[in-house]
């Protein structure tokens, strides 16, 4: 049964993750008054990269790519997706956040293993940015975990009932949304992969199947992060309700990113450590003093 559930989560993440990415590209195109690619363009891109003959850059690189994908797949397995909880009782917020780092570190290791300086700059920027968004995110989620006296995501999901945390913790939800923008690497927090500036940063030396695997990893990562937001703040829901909520959050993120330019890395971190962090502390203050709506 667990195997089936895990397979269900992965298939959902694969199919809907890529589909929604395609829809996101279409939306960006419409915002820029273009026609845009087909909704299944990302599937074609993925399978095309897998069909090419690529270059490796040594075993550190190979291992890093596998570790990145593996770490993300492992953490995705713990995220409740639309009523599917693969490991009941173990969908702890901290487990998921902990496993996420394996993926990020794997990517950092593999990409630095290519020896390309752009890749090192990109990885350094990604880790710096992580320092920026994790702090306000953790503070705001921490206040919520404190309020519910649990870090189990299913428990928080069921405790919300029809009354979403989005309305109970409005400021915390805003902070989480701003952090989500950085986690997904969308504008204005796109500095780690800036294609025109540092030649797509960590991905600079990726050819063929390595590119494909990292694209897949990126899709899974986006899926896990947005799912976490939907579970914690929008009350999860049954399978299709969940996907609908997911789509709404995703469209919002894409719309924001399609009209904004790029922050420099120090501007991004400065921003995260001023506005969202103050808001997060306001949320903590309200939660501790019982101002929860």
């Amino acid at each position: 049964m667990t195997v089936l559930k895990v397979a269900g989560i992965f298939l959902t993440a694969f199919f809907f993750g890529l589909t929604f990415e395609g829809i996101g590209r279409k939306i960006t195109a419409r915002v820029q008054r273009r026609y845009g690619p087909r909704w299944y363009q990302n599937f074609i891109d993925l399978f095309k990269t897998l069909s090419k003959h690529g270059y490796t850059h040594g075993w550190i690189f190979d291992f890093g790519v596998i570790m990145a994908l593996g770490g993300i797949i492992a953490s995705l397995g713990f995220v409740p997706v639309g009523g599917i909880v693969a490991f009941p009782g173990m969908d702890n917020f901290f487990v998921i956040v902990y496993l996420f780092t394996i993926g990020s570190l794997g990517m950092a290791m593999g990409m630095v293993g290519t020896g390309n300086p752009w890749a090192s700059i990109g990885v350094a920027r990604a880790l710096t940015l992580m320092l920026g968004y994790e702090v306000p995110y953790m503070i705001s989620i921490g206040s919520m975990l404190y309020f519910y006296r649990t870090s189990s995501i299913s428990a928080i999901m069921s405790a919300q009932g029809g009354d979403w945390n989005l309305f109970k913790f409005p400021i915390g939800a805003l902070v989480a949304l701003i952090s989500l923008q950085g986690m997904l690497g969308k504008e204005p927090f796109e500095a780690p992969i800036a294609p025109a500036e540092i030649a797509s940063g960590p991905m600079v030396e990726l050819s063929a199947k390595y590119m494909g695997l990292l694209m897949l990893m990126n899709t899974f990562m986006e899926f896990a992060e947005i799912s976490l937001f939907v579970d914690l703040f929008l009350g999860g829901g049954t399978y299709f309700v969940f996907l609908l909520k997911y789509l709404v959050v995703w469209v919002l993120v894409v719309l924001i990113s399609s009209v904004l330019p790029r922050f420099r890395i120090e501007q991004a971190v400065y921003f995260y450590w001023t506005v969202p962090i103050i808001l997060a502390f306001v949320q903590v203050f309200m939660t501790v003093n019982g101002f929860v709506f």
Partner: peptide
């Protein structure tokens, strides 16, 4: 937006590897 090659599935890439 005038000719929009992304509708053909094409796009600019940053490096020769990709």
């Amino acid at each position: 937006s005038r000719f929009d090659m992304e509708r053909l599935g094409m796009g600019p890439m940053a490096t020769p590897r990709q």
